[in-house]
Design a protein around this nucleic acid. Structure first.
Length: 774
DNA sequence: CGCATGACTTAGTATTGCGCGC
DNA sequence: GCGCGCAATACTAAGTCATGCG
């Protein structure tokens, strides 16, 4: 390709981003790291090619590919004229009407001019993949074209030195970059803020840092290193960034848009699709969760040579825009979804560049995930009776299998594969549960059938629940809770604390058994099924309430969120409470108290007014805030002026600091205002006071309700179940049935992600029949 | 035939930017 | 119209699971 004009994808970008010209394509990888070579050798053998296949296999493979291409040429897709990006976006083609007249009740209205991003979004919306013909079995695409990975800019040294033993140390750019990685880590964050993880983090970082420093470097002891000069510099840069002018902000946005036009979209089978992650992960420190043994290790910069790109043979290859570099390898594999792939240097795992959640690839698999879960509706009784039977089996392996299935079904645990604790954090799921994770009879009660389950699950999230296996919840409808309890007693008897409870069981065995009951069934489907069916049942309960019809939209949304919360708790979806949120809650609590105190004062005032014997002069009046207000206004104006006039970084920093100070003052003023908001400047009348008391009562009710809601919600994350577990069609049907705008439930991204679910009927139900679709 | 691996889903946290109250 | 606080989005780590290889 000599010019952009040959490349449809490039037509999305008027001009290339400010990057030097591209390296010639297609390339042959120059020097590659050892590990990369190894991978390549391996990959080659798995890549379909004449060399690694028998004649028959190669023929079969070619036939398959030909079938796919034939489908592309003669299938229904091609009956209409093939649409390309050019049709929609080439500016030189028929000029797109910039302004659209829309008839409204109020008369003709001129709609806003659509920008390029919006026009592209509209074009993508026009393609309904769920109504388009299906791609041949197994293939993900017929043709695919995209812009490849976008790499972060080369490191620019800032020249700030770290101190060693109190003295500044000269560093090479590489060394300085590495030091800057560490300086950028929040000292109070989840890694350095915890003494236990801080040690792991620092040890790992310093080992890698010493490697970068080289042998015989003066820096030998981490304790003598002082990274604060760089930290300060980074903080200052943040302040400089804050003092940005509107013009600069606009320019930054434009540059970002350019990159997005070039890398943010792919053309799959003639349709525009959004790319999920086109930005290469920048280098830095590895932020493993929990007590990950590798946290703090330096994550290296990835070069284009380490990246494989995947696109169709006939498409123009993506341009690698890092000067002097080229893609490691080019592939044309229509059986996978990924656009790019590379290996990271911490755990040597593969990372992928893929399409976004709203794409057809993701939509299709998402829909079939929910349909599979729906099919479980018709099989769940069969499965549960299978569990019931096997819980009492004489064969221990069978009994363990059934017990594990019970746990996965009823407690919504993950399957839990084996993990190497030298390489990863020690987290568990069902199959990897150990004796130490169970405490029998935690409350020391006679005849108790309680077990406390306490362990770290995915992302080192704490699962801590006391399960009463003797309760109705687990025994009604033949729930078998007591039998499960007996089995656990048996499986743990005489075992060491660190041994597996299910020693005969692996995820492989479990999943094999599940798929023999229902094709495609695996452990994770239970989480999807239980989340969806729980949402549906909880919503049905809410609607049964006789007062339901009279509720406002907001109240209905609150009810939906309550149902959502039950699902989130079932799946143990948590979030950490940040310090800012914690203080926010404290502040709210304080405000509530103030309001209550003020109400008391108001009542006293009312009494005084009604009491002829007491002089009205003892009624407290509002103090003037004029002086304070003037001070705040002056400080704000000065900071603004400084910001406007700032030329150098130092001045910008000063301006930002002044601005922060002024805002602090304003906050004080606000607090002062709040503290006497209940008072008047003159002696009030009785009716004035009475109405203000009512007003304050309302405020107090509202605020305490709000506070309670926040407290209930602060550690539960509703988003994860909404995004991954609850069938969106349940929510869409709920909204339609109850006249709740879908925007109140799903954000824009979620509406896009679940575009395939938006057209269901209000009466839609999550059940077995639905699952048969696909 | 078991286990490593490739590909894809699920997850919490960090950062961004927008709607709402002043 | 302005700025704050939160919701939405961006990011990337950490799972699951089928497969295919030795």
């Amino acid at each position: 390709m000599d010019s952009d004009d040959d490349i449809p994808i490039a037509s999305l970008s008027a001009k290339l981003p400010p990057k030097p010209p591209a390296a010639p394509q297609p390339p042959k990888a120059p020097a590659v790291v050892k590990q990369q070579e190894e991978k390549k050798e391996k990959k080659k053998s798995t890549l379909p090619s004449k060399d690694n296949m028998t004649k028959e296999e190669w023929k079969a493979y070619k036939k398959k590919l030909k079938a796919i291409r034939d489908f592309a040429k003669h299938g229904k897709v091609e009956k209409k004229k093939k649409r390309s990006a050019d049709d929609d976006f080439e500016e030189k083609k028929p000029p797109r009407p910039k302004k659209v007249k829309i008839e409204t009740k109020k008369g003709p209205k001129v709609a806003k001019t659509l920008d390029k991003t919006q026009r592209i979004a509209n074009a993508m919306k026009a393609f309904l993949w769920w109504e388009a013909p299906k791609v041949p079995e197994g293939a993900q695409w017929l043709t695919m074209e995209h812009g490849g990975v976008y790499f972060p800019d080369k490191y620019v040294p800032h020249g700030v030195k770290i101190n060693y033993n109190g003295k500044p140390v000269d560093l090479t750019p590489d060394q300085e970059e590495c030091a800057t990685f560490f300086a950028a880590v929040d000292p109070n964050g989840m890694h350095l803020g915890n003494p236990k993880t801080a040690k792991i983090f620092i040890d790992n970082f310093f080992t890698d840092f010493k490697e970068v420093l080289g042998k015989g470097h003066v820096i030998k002891d981490f304790a003598k290193c002082d990274f604060t000069p760089i930290t300060r510099h980074l903080d200052e840069q943040k302040m400089v960034k804050k003092a940005i002018t509107d013009g600069e902000r606009k320019a930054n946005k434009a540059a970002k848009d350019q990159v997005n036009f070039r890398h943010g979209y792919a053309i799959v089978d003639g349709h525009l699709e959004k790319v999920g992650n086109y930005n290469m992960e920048p280098p830095g420190t590895f932020r493993g969760r929990g007590e990950h043994p590798k946290m703090g290790k330096v994550k290296q910069r990835v070069t284009p040579e380490q990246v494989y790109v995947n696109f169709s043979v006939e498409a123009p290859p993506p341009i690698c825009d890092v000067p002097g570099h080229a893609w490691g390898e080019v592939r044309h594999d229509p059986f996978v979804q990924w656009l790019g792939n590379w290996k990271e240097n911490i755990n040597f795992q593969d990372k992928y560049m893929q399409l976004a959640a709203m794409s057809s690839f993701k939509g299709k698999s998402d829909r079939s995930k929910y349909n599979k879960a729906a099919r479980l509706c018709g099989n769940i009784e069969k499965i549960r009776s299978d569990i019931r039977k096997n819980l009492k089996s004489n064969d221990k392996a069978v009994r363990q299998l059934a017990t594990a299935m019970w746990v996965i079904d009823r407690l919504a645990l993950r399957v839990g594969g084996e993990k190497d604790t030298d390489e990863e954090a020690d987290t568990v799921g069902c199959c990897s549960l150990r004796v130490e994770h169970m405490t029998f009879n935690p409350n020391n009660e006679e005849g108790s059938k309680e077990i406390e389950l306490e362990f770290l699950g995915k992302d080192s999230m704490l699962f801590k629940q006391t399960i009463d296996f003797g309760s109705d919840l687990y025994n009604d409808n033949n729930g078998m809770g007591e039998q499960v309890y007996k089995n656990f007693k048996d499986f743990t008897k005489g075992k060491n604390a660190t041994t597996d409870i299910f020693e005969t069981l692996t995820p492989g065995i479990l999943n094999q058994h599940l798929s023999s009951i229902m094709p495609g069934l695996s452990a994770k489907v239970f989480r999807t099924y239980n989340a969806s069916i729980t949402l549906q049942n909880e919503l049905a309960k809410k609607i049964e309430n006789p007062a339901w019809k009279s509720l406002t939209v907001s109240q209905k949304v609150t009810n939906y969120n309550d149902a959502n919360r039950i699902v989130a708790i079932l799946c143990n979806h948590q979030r950490s409470v940040s310090k800012a949120q914690e203080t926010q809650l404290d502040v709210m609590g304080g405000k509530l108290q103030t309001l209550q105190d003020q109400k008391k004062v108001l009542k006293k005032i009312l009494k005084i007014l009604g009491d002829k014997d007491r002089p009205n002069s003892i009624i407290p009046l509002k103090q003037s805030e004029g002086e304070l207000k003037a001070g705040v206004d002056k400080a704000l104006a000065e900071a603004k002026k400084m910001k406007e006039e700032a030329k150098t970084d130092a001045q910008k920093i000063e301006a930002t600091k002044a601005d922060l100070k002024a805002k602090e003052k304003r906050k004080d003023l606000g607090n002062s205002k709040f503290s006497q908001a209940h008072l008047w400047e003159k002696i009030p009348t009785e009716s004035q006071v009475a109405s203000r008391i009512k007003n304050w009562s309302d405020k107090i009710t509202k605020m305490s309700l709000d506070l309670k809601n926040r407290e209930d919600n602060k550690e539960v994350s509703l988003g994860t179940s909404k995004i991954n577990y609850m069938d969106p069609r349940i929510s869409v049907a709920f909204c339609k049935e109850n006249e709740v705008p879908i925007e109140r439930i799903f954000s824009k991204t979620l509406r896009d992600k679940f575009n395939w679910a938006m057209s269901v009927q209000p009466t839609w139900q999550f059940n077995y029949e639905i699952g048969l679709e696909n």
